[in-house]
Write a protein that binds this DNA or RNA. Sequence first.
DNA 1: AAGCAACTGTTTATTAATTAACAGATCAAA
DNA 2: TTTGATCTGTTAATTAATAAACAGTTGCTT
Lengths: 208, 208
Amino acid sequence: MGILSSKVVERLSFYRQLLLKYDNAQQSHVNSAQLSRLTGATQETIRRDLMLIGCQSLNIRKGYLVKDMVDCINKVLDPFELSRIALVGDNDAFTETLLYEYENRHIRLVAVFDFDTVNEAFCRNDMQRFHFDELHDTIRSLDIRLVILNVPGAFTCQTADILINAGVKGIINLSPVHLESKAIYVENLNIITAIEKASYFMKWRQYV
Amino acid sequence: MGILSSKVVERLSFYRQLLLKYDNAQQSHVNSAQLSRLTGATQETIRRDLMLIGCQSLNIRKGYLVKDMVDCINKVLDPFELSRIALVGDNDAFTETLLYEYENRHIRLVAVFDFDTVNEAFCRNDMQRFHFDELHDTIRSLDIRLVILNVPGAFTCQTADILINAGVKGIINLSPVHLESKAIYVENLNIITAIEKASYFMKWRQYV
DNA sequence: AAGCAACTGTTTATTAATTAACAGATCAAA
DNA sequence: TTTGATCTGTTAATTAATAAACAGTTGCTT
């Protein structure tokens, strides 16, 4: 199977997030119409996405088996081995999410870097807190490849340099300064752009 | 001029963020090749975007006048009147960004809601801190239409309900539970999806 | 003032993504 | 066992987005 497009990967991630809740609710099957209602994607898009990853319905009248679909998506999205990630610039909501809500055995938050002292509320033996000063050395010694960067824009570039220099290969950049790199993978989630986009479409669609 | 596509709006926001730094650096002109290098978009895409909003180069040999381009983008992206926004679930980096880095006279952070007590570091007379208990009443009395939702997934839906009920017309959802609404504008910036996407492409592009 | 170089503005072509359409398979009910 | 409703899997059509191509204009240089 070849590489999938960015949009397909996004949707697969989204389907799985929904299905994991479904699974807990003892719903054994799901069809494309139901998924369409939950996701906003059309039925055809969903079936096509599943076709691309070789996920087939075994019971054509009831739709897809939730467990099967999750397994198929797991095979595509989960890294081969444990991926240790770090959060640079604290955010209680993210920390809580990554530690307690995101139960993916293949991806785990192992370090949080901040200026502040330790926040006792979020301490586990498999997750440690560090001061910014320890950034380079800790990233290197823990062999962290993927980092969520959540610092004010004034620190974005210098922090990114430290990270790349310490061996990081992917940055999810939540800071308001756009990062661009050919050497590593960068995903910019720019809050300023999000606000301006929201304002624009709220104006046009006359929600306001 | 008609409504622009989501991608064009995103790029315009991005161009402006770059140009505002350019402007400070006393660079009077910029051409599409330079912008292309900074943004990753092709020259043609950039020229086409600018054409769409009626932004023209007055000096065809030097490229676009930075000031003019910013003015053109302002006209398209900035709301007619002051847009008061709120941050629900604190995040020091975002608060700092929105208060001190994002100097847009048309969009202003006026309220932060959190469980914690006041963080003295971020207090200004035009921005106030509130407890979650005050969410509904404060949103309504301050007439806030756009909110950044930054809470753990367990609280996403109930908080969104309160917000919508209080008159909010747009939510930028940073929590790990997808929101979908036909009544209001929703922009999901899902950190779980971002992580899974990054892992996927890092694997395929062999950055790891 | 003539010629050249640089960069835009716009049209046309190409590629990507989404939606529509429908044949085929299978389960359920009568 | 037959009929029919339902939902998939896949191909074809449409739409959206990007990239290429190039004519046209202007300023700079000689």
